[in-house]
Amino acid sequence: MESTESNGNGISHPYNSLIKMRGIWKTYQMGNEQLHALREVSFDVRRGEYLAIIGPSGSGKSTLMNLIGCLDTPTKGEYWINGEQVAKMSDDELARIRNKEIGFVFQTFNLLARATALHNVELPLIYAGIGSGERHDRAVDALSSVELGDRITHRPNELSGGQRQRVAIARALVNQPSILLADEPTGALDTHTSAEIMNLFEKLHADGNTIIVVTHEAEVAERAHRIITIRDGEIEKDEKIK
């Protein structure tokens, strides 16, 4: 049950989907051997979807996440984000796409240790070239939306794990990206805090954000509305669960 929007003749227009991957291969050269991390992967993600990508370690899901997040380019295949072909883009063009279209949430938060929560959240806006006044206001808004409006001057080591991940989520959202891309977002958190973060994702989804979560935890995946299962570099299953 693939969720492709087709116009009848089999060629879908890239603008219909937020993400459109066609025949994506990622091949690594290991000495004389070729290792195919992804083989012929094709799928679409529409705006407003809440998608989980699951699979055992070594299945290729991290590679897929890197490609979706434009941190890497495919060996072969085509990839559109928001109507832009990104498969052949240069490093700097990819940086622009990451800045504009993708909000990352990492397992280990990846906050700048010496910077305040506010400064961490401002980071994408600095690279977007936004002036300090607007930057400050938007960062404060983003922190307020994850209920950290009263913690803006705190540094990461003065915040709990859940709070740090919320700072990271605020940072991911601050430049109003098309996709919130989370890599094992609860991997470093206890059960209670994990639930808190997953509730936040649900709220963000309800607000209209497109969310893609890469995880190996079934409970996390089950919160999504659609699950793609990756095995041996191929899509094994793509199912809508809500």
Binding site: G69, L71, D91, D92, A95, R96, R98, N99, K100, F104, N110, L112, L123, P124, Y127, A128, R171, N175
Partner: peptide
């Protein structure tokens, strides 16, 4: 290194 990676992930170009 990690900080550089993060900066690039959120949109820093090579020149930045």
């Amino acid at each position: 290194t990690k900080e550089i990676g993060l900066r690039k992930a959120v949109g820093a170009r090579q020149t930045d």
